[in-house]
Design a protein around this nucleic acid. Structure first.
Lengths: 254, 254
DNA sequence: TATTGACATTGACGTTACGTTAATGTGTAT
DNA sequence: ATACACATTAACGTAACGTCAATGTCAATA
């Protein structure tokens, strides 16, 4: 049995464009070209197309598929395992996205109408939660799931007053931090007060405080350009200063 | 405070190219252009960029973001809810993909080294499982999870002999089907035998047989070009014939 | 002052897997 | 002869930038 592009396309459920593209890529060449320049496919090509579509169905890109179908004994199993890894990473990211979108929806649906500025708070919260992924397991082991879940619902159930309070506390953290920065000494009383205020602020968003996580968050402020910018706004270096103060506060550095 | 492209880029953690692109799209214009043609951004633009990045972080495309940030009081909540739907759909698809990839890995890792032809069997299996999604809930309700899970592991634990048996059975289905097709009558003994063989074949892959699902699978053979091709290989119309025979076999049609 | 190096600009191609015209030739039935 | 379905190549378009290339500008230094 021989097929033209359209016949094969119908048979396999793909467009003629796709077949021409696969030809161009060298992933599926017709068995011959007739006198008018038409592409003619045979049974071998049908089977091969089936193979290609099989892998495509699994979400692999054509480059990888090419490796598999052209190399006679390419390690398809290995390729699949790598592919699975990619898919799992994708899903993890997707889950994070969904989580954040839902949180944002909860926020906008709730009593609190966020200003654009306030939305940035949600942004900050995200990093804290990314951190939770790092330290969350440990916390879950120590305190159980309940406390973590409670924490995750904290912001959603925040009243206007609580929200105002946490905002005010955030301002205080900044103010104290800048004042402490003048002393130049992260172990100074003022710097330690800033660290403590920051811990309080954190606890608004997050139950289950522990030292490592607190340090982890402040380290992230240093590492992430956006957050560094937030803390460095008026005083360059204050992100590092806060982290150092918290390191001492947490007793992890003299 | 005023920023050049690089300053703002560093501040927000994006490339200068990105800023020029956002300018081009009209999603973030600089506050002014200086005498040398440099883009100069102000605080307003910083805030706006923060907004843009916030939505970008949620995986929205720039077109949607543009709608949100340019229209003064665009319904951002609605956009977010729609966006969530899209994400959930994506995740569902991704889960399906992962499931199938894992099944394929299990197959290739198992005792059975698949030839390319045999891979097509995995393809067929997939459709059956898609069908399971349709009827699976009902089956779970009737027979509980155990039987369904057992079914899902069937192929993985198949021995070489069992595999050979199912292959042979598959051939028999085809042969009988083609012979029955000559009678032209889906209620003929031969056609009913083909339907019964098909049920047996199906049961190799799938515990928890029921009539609707059996009919569902054969209907899928008709609807899906690839499977139609498989059954229609030598006898055009045999996919429909099998479905009609199974309809009668299942007592859903006189 | 001339040069250097970091920074800025616009322009244009590349990425992925095709969809979609456009311009044109071929096969077949009436 | 005409109509119509089908084939071909060539080319642009997609999303969100990355990556040159060619060229101009700013600040500091030999």
């Amino acid at each position: 049995m021989e097929y033209t592009v359209q016949k094969l396309g119908k048979l396999a459920g793909v467009s003629t464009r796709t077949l021409r593209y696969y030809d161009e890529l060298g992933i599926l060449k017709p068995s011959r070209i007739n006198s008018s320049g038409y592409r003619i496919y045979g049974q071998t090509e049908v089977d091969r197309l089936q193979q290609i579509l099989f892998y495509r169905e699994l979400g692999m890109n054509l480059e990888s598929i090419k490796d598999i179908v052209t190399a006679p004994s390419f390690d398809a199993a290995k390729a699949l395992i790598e592919h699975r890894e990619k898919l799992l990473d994708k899903r993890e990211q997707l889950d994070l996205l969904i989580e954040n979108v839902e949180k944002t929806i909860a926020l906008t649906e709730g009593r609190i109408t966020m200003s654009d500025k306030e939305k940035f708070e949600g942004f900050k919260q995200k990093l804290i939660e990314d951190n939770e992924k790092k330290y969350g397991k440990e916390i879950r082991e120590k305190y159980g799931d309940k406390v973590v879940n409670k924490s995750n619902n904290k912001l959603q159930n925040m009243t206007q007053e609580e929200y105002d309070a946490v905002t005010k506390l955030g301002d205080e953290v900044i103010k104290t931090l800048y004042a402490a920065f003048q002393t130049g000494d992260p172990s100074s009383d003022l710097a330690q007060k800033a660290a403590d205020l920051h811990r309080q602020w954190l606890n608004f968003y997050w139950d289950g405080y522990n030292k490592e996580a607190h340090v982890g968050v402040t380290q992230m402020y240093v590492d992430d350009e956006r957050f560094k910018a937030y803390y460095d706004e008026k005083q360059l270096g204050s992100a590092e200063f806060l982290r150092d103060a918290v390191l001492i506060y947490a007793g992890m550095k003299a």
